[in-house]
Nucleic acid binder design. Structure first.
Length: 361
DNA sequence: TAAGCGTGGAG
DNA sequence: TCTCCAAGCTT
């Protein structure tokens, strides 16, 4: 009884306060039985994994402009997709995005599966994303629990167990709250509430539609939940990157191995990154000069990258495993952020093309 | 099961 | 400057 009360308060709030997002249809349309495009729901959900709405918006607009449907995306070249994803992070998502699009075309005739199990069998789609797509795009009464849902449930029910241990309990609580009617709107209502009212810091309990039913608020501990187990500190790793530019403006680049950090992305040749800079040699003989340091923080370590730059003759051959990308084809926007920072140092050190370059001229 | 995997904004 | 964090998935 309490759960249905919470559920209807949530939907009533969503009908008035739903965020207007490019991958959504409004609550009025949804209540009238319409559904959002599964392709757009899927694409947005993948982009939104561990990523803010603010960061995703422009990427979503660009992707849907270039690839309006799953068939178009499935036919795209890998490098083009990785280049468009550059800067958004967690690049395994982009690799899985393509694999998923191609699987939808080859295994499902270009239509996304309309069940949670069918969706979860696809690359890059896990428990959260499968439930979200099933509920939002197909009207299935699946329980959708993301970080917002965990936080809202922990507060509503005053769950003091720290995450991630509390996860199963929070999922059970969310399951009890999931309605048969408008499950997609319910899921999005929890997310919107978590994003705009029941926020991680300084929750706006004063305007919360669930305040009368919230046990954490009653106990005065809403802002302290959910509790989280402490995270390990980030070590520092160091490495060297080599930026070589030919007299015609072409840069020496590599495509990184498909797995691992920045996997499948364009980058500069250099050393591995370790506590101590590994013994190494430059990718080719040249007058290497120091171009400064780049500092960058990844999920689990800080990186200090020593950048070195050199100008090369126009006819310099590319070493094995590397290639020159001509000035016309090179776009720093195709690089992950770390490599973009290194590029800026290289340009600063080398100056405009032809000024400090091309010792062979 | 726990670690690996990005980035930019907020406080 | 630094820590925390945002619609998680994979191995």
């Amino acid at each position: 009884m309490r759960d249905t009360e919470i559920g209807s308060a949530l939907l009533a709030w969503y009908d008035v306060h739903a965020r207007d997002l490019p991958w959504r249809i409004g609550p009025a349309e949804s209540a009238a039985g319409r559904r959002a495009d599964p392709y757009r729901v899927w694409l947005s959900e993948i982009m939104l994994q561990q990523t803010t709405v603010a960061a995703v918006r422009s990427y979503f607009e660009r992707f849907t402009a270039i690839w309006p449907d799953v068939g178009a995306l499935a036919a795209a070249e890998d490098a083009r997709v990785m280049g468009e994803w550059a800067g958004l992070g967690y690049y395994a998502r982009a690799r899985n995005l393509l694999a998923c699009a191609r699987a939808v075309v080859s295994l499902h005739g270009g239509q996304f599966p309309d069940t949670r199990a069918g969706l979860e069998a696809l690359p890059g789609i896990g428990p959260y994303t499968s439930a979200a797509i099933a509920a939002i795009a197909f009207g299935r009464a699946e329980t959708v629990v993301d970080g917002n849902g965990e936080r809202v449930m922990a507060r509503l029910h005053a769950v003091e167990t720290p995450l991630p241990a509390a996860k199963p309990e929070l999922v059970a609580l969310a399951h009890a709250l999931t309605p048969q009617e408008r499950p997609g709107d319910h899921a999005q209502a929890v997310m919107d509430l978590g994003a705009t009212v029941c926020t991680p810091r300084r929750p706006a309990c004063g305007i919360c539609p669930l305040r009368p039913m919230c046990r954490a608020h009653a106990a005065g501990i809403a802002a302290d939940l959910p509790r989280k187990s402490p995270k390990p500190a980030k070590p520092v790793r160091r490495g060297v990157a080599y930026l070589a530019r030919r007299g015609d403006g072409a840069w020496l680049l590599e495509t990184r191995p498909a797995r691992g950090l920045l996997g499948g992305m364009l980058g500069w040749p250099g050393t591995d990154w370790a506590e101590r800079v590994p013994d190494h040699a430059p990718p080719l003989a040249a007058e290497w000069r120091p171009a400064g340091e780049v500092r960058h923080t990844f999920t689990h370590f800080h990186l200090v990258l020593d950048v070195r730059a050199a100008g090369l003759p126009r006819d310099a051959p590319a070493p094995a495993g590397l290639r020159f990308v001509g000035a016309r084809d090179f776009d720093p926007g195709d690089l992950p952020t770390l490599m973009r920072k290194a590029h800026a140092r290289g340009v600063a050190a080398l100056g405009p093309i032809d000024a400090g370059d091309d010792p062979g001229l």
